[in-house]
Amino acid sequence: MSLQIINLHATLEDGTPILKGVNLEIPKGQVHAIMGPNGSGKSTLSKVIAGHESYVVTAGSVLQDGEELLEKSVDERSRDGIFLAFQYPSEVPGVSNANFIRAALQARLPKGEEIDAVAYYKSLYEKMDLLEMDRKFTARAVNEGFSGGEKKRNEILQMMMLDPQYGILDETDSGLDIDALKIVAKGVNAMRSPDRGLLLITHYQRLLDYIKPDVVHVMAEGKIVRSGGAELALELEENGYEFLKEPALA
């Protein structure tokens, strides 16, 4: 049981290639991290997996437990257990956080079935408490006027509520101070489970001090160029991405 990315190629709508043959497998029960310099294609990879329509997949495949994902629509992928925590979550004016998450959960139920409101709020409040989110966030419009840290916590809250099989966190650590980072990490660690695979996309090593990955990958120029254990992140922190130039030339 894994999320398997096989020789994935993707371009922008104008044909500019971004992903140039990504190979990656995230088994359930593991946490993987992708690191890499700006422009290496990390965020594009997350959006292509989620189904963003500004990218064109030109080759390759993404298998979720053996089933092709790329043929499904964005919302179908989400309902089938793929979750993307956004680097820049959208604001949705006039839609309260509680109603938004409820609509997302409702979308997973068969027609005619309704969410049990009492159980829903109980579950929502539990998760908000864990993420140290004030109850007032249920009534506030989704991400509107939220600070950077509040938006990221809200992404983790949504992931916890939607309980996906595979979660991809796109630079969830960016824009967070150390306290917010710890809270977000607590939420992500609470999501670790033998039934779930997680992929962290990050520019900095510091997130990995709090969420220990099983495997670290380095991405450069649209490909995974190195994979290793958690120690690879420390090595990158010390030496930077300079080393990438050598294997690329070799």
Binding site: S73, V74, D75, S78, R79, F86, S90, A103
Partner: peptide, 16 residues
């Protein structure tokens, strides 16, 4: 489009 993508990425179909 970004706003629609965000809602769809949570499983909500385009019409909703």
């Amino acid at each position: 489009d970004d706003e629609i993508f965000y809602l769809r990425a949570r499983g909500i179909d385009p019409a909703n």
